[in-house]
Design a protein around this nucleic acid. Structure first.
Lengths: 181, 181
DNA sequence: ATTTAATATGTAAATAATTACATGTTTATT
DNA sequence: AATAAACATGTAATTATTTACATATTAAAT
């Protein structure tokens, strides 16, 4: 389904970026929900250029470093818009290695199970601390962020990531009580 | 990291299964958190046999249909146990195509955005109805399910899947209010 | 009796994604 | 001035996953 194609088109629709910039974006907030390594991004950019969905300009950084700055074409915008408005079915499987282990919990002693769950809980709590810090940016405002703000997408992603973790933590805590151990 | 290897070992640790049975299992409750197609399962079973983690017996179904019924070996049990007790880092990215679209929401009109979110909400609600039906099995009991029950893993997976969806729905509903549209 | 759905097992080809290989420049720090 | 970190771009090899190809038996429904 080439989701990476649309991920790149969506990023470029927000502004001009190099392959390196796109790689960096996937390490930031959108990385909670989609990412790719540079080894996947550079060939995809090449393909998108050939297909006419993006184009680039070479910019010299310093005295000789050649940087390719990509922008989305009109054709690319049409393509992006089509994908955005087309219903994507929810995948039945959202892979989660921890939950796979949880399903096999009967192969463990209660002590081992408790350890497994406590470790997961601790890590998830650390993630929440990190996410809540980022989220400050939106909470401290006089007016709550609105749809028309260019940062609304950023807000959506951060608030969802935060809620997802909080829900996971709440469940882990209840299950730890059940395990006893 | 060959997670499929451990998924298969974990399933076989619960009981003897054919490749077809394993494929079926991935369409049931554990499929919410891990799955694979039969075209991936059969080669993996072959490899696991060569490595000595599983073994099989040929069982005749009917008069001539040859079925390979796999079981986990002692070596396989050791291997499974090692993985179960080894900490797996939480992947930074849990891919979610809808959230990728949400991040790009500024490329849409409020009407389009509302449609996108409402569609997602409806589908998630349908999933909850389905999951809640399955979950009845555990709710109607006099005694709540305990760690020692062989169905505890099943309970963990179903309760987590249900909570995950409920959390998603609650967030979607709040965000739809924000979009206005 | 016939048809359909479910059971059963594989391989081949294509796509997606990660890890490793490979190189060079620029900016910030010491 | 030297070093380290960040910027910058690619390819190769491997692994993971999906879709398509390919075939046959058995059980259930009509």
């Amino acid at each position: 389904m080439r989701v990476l194609k649309y991920a790149i088109l969506g990023l470029l629709d927000k502004g001009r970026l190099s392959g390196y910039d796109i790689t960096s974006k996937f390490k930031e907030e959108i990385g909670h929900f989609w990412s790719a390594k540079h080894s996947q991004i550079y060939p995809e950019l090449k393909k998108l250029t050939e297909e006419g969905f993006v184009e680039y300009q070479i910019v010299i950084q310093g005295t000789k470093l050649e940087k390719k700055v990509y922008s989305i074409t009109e054709l690319g915008k049409t393509e992006l818009h089509e994908w955005m408005n087309q219903y994507s079915p929810i995948p039945e499987t959202q892979k989660d290695e921890f939950m796979l282990k949880a399903y096999f919990v009967s192969s463990m002693s209660p002590e081992e199970a408790k350890q497994l769950f406590e470790d997961q809980l601790e890590k998830r709590k650390q993630t929440v601390v990190f996410l809540e810090e980022r989220f400050q940016e939106f909470e401290g405002k006089e007016e709550p962020i609105s749809f028309s703000s260019p940062d609304f997408g950023h807000y959506l992603v951060l608030s969802r990531a935060l809620e997802r973790e909080k829900s996971y933590i709440s469940w882990l805590e209840r299950m730890i009580k059940r395990i006893g151990g």
